[in-house]
């Protein structure tokens, strides 16, 4: 399968990108690592007339502390997240999830900005962004705006990012000594897209959870924060009865959509199983 013909240009600044997006609108697409975009071009799910290559924009690279948050430039590759000391120290959830994002050759080229711009519902990083309360820095012709991850994922491959905008960075609050986290996913082959996954982030004080964000992915059109389930678990001593009661909320609040490999019932079963496992793990 070959993509439809397109024009190609190399951007030399973010302003240049915005100018081109203004000029070409929906007909232009930004390409960075291309690891999500090129398959959609090859399968002709997308057929832009112009690709704007941003991979030379060094201003979009890098991982740095920014007050009480960690800022990751959109062009930062998955392999760089995997080996970065700041990530290991301040974002343990990302440090554990990133090892499950695709395969090594994909991680060598794929970028966090591309991943979050395409927003595959079975991808790990959109779910992590939601669980961690990430903020996305987006630049368009009207300047810069910050969008919270909770407002960003709209529908299947649909985000709050507009056709004339570019995602430039993502920032995450730092983990504290009270932070608890967990990661689980069911895959047919290591590195493939998951059939069901859970990332969880929260805070625990005096043996009780004071905040909790269990986010399920690969179960629906977007990653889903199970807030009602989480509410049942807050500020109480965790025990088996309480956990089982909270898991019942997942039946009501998860909009699970089965697929050819994994039925709705199976996904829901895995969702509960994983949350039970992670809560057991953090409760030790």
């Amino acid at each position: 399968m070959k993509p439809r013909s397109f024009s190609f240009t190399t951007a030399h600044s973010v302003e240049h990108v915005i100018g081109l997006l203004q000029e070409h609108g929906d007909e232009a697409k930004i390409i960075a690592g291309g690891q999500s975009l090129v398959p959609t071009l090859n399968m002709r799910l997308s057929a832009p007339q112009l690709l704007i290559d941003i991979s030379a924009l060094d201003e979009l690279r890098g991982i740095s502390l920014d007050g009480d948050r960690l800022r990751i430039g959109a062009l930062t590759r998955h392999v760089e997240l995997q080996s970065n000391k700041l990530i290991a120290q301040h974002l343990p959830l990302i440090a554990s999830a990133i090892n499950h994002v695709a395969h090594v050759a994909i991680r060598n080229r794929g970028t966090i900005g591309g991943n979050l711009s395409l927003a595959d519902p079975a991808s790990e990083l959109p779910a992590c962004s939601l669980a961690l309360g990430a903020e996305l820095s987006i630049v368009g012709n009207k300047g810069k705006r910050i969008v919270k991850a909770g407002d960003y994922f709209k529908d299947l491959y649909e985000t709050d990012l507009q056709a004339n905008e570019i995602l430039v960075a993502i920032s995450f609050p730092l983990a504290t000594t009270n932070t608890v986290h967990g990661f689980r996913e069911f895959v047919r082959r290591r590195g493939d897209f998951a059939s069901c996954g859970l990332v969880m982030n929260g805070e625990r004080q005096d043996g009780k959870l004071t905040s909790l964000a269990p986010v399920f992915f690969a179960i629906s059109n977007t990653p889903v924060l199970a807030s009602k389930c989480a509410a049942k678990l807050l500020n109480k001593t965790l025990n088996d009865d309480l956990i089982e009661e909270a898991l019942l909320e997942l039946d009501r609040e998860l909009p699970v959509i089965g697929d050819i490999h994994t039925s709705t019932e199976m996904k829901l079963h895995l969702a509960k199983h994983y949350l039970r496992e992670i809560l057991g793990e953090i409760n030790v």
């Binding site: 390409i31 090129v38 090859n42 050759a105 080229r109």
Partner: peptide, 14 residues
């Protein structure tokens, strides 16, 4: 780095 040549445009290898 090892990469997928099917997911890399030759133009991007310039």
């Amino acid at each position: 780095d090892s990469v997928r040549s099917c997911l890399t445009l030759a133009a991007q290898a310039n």
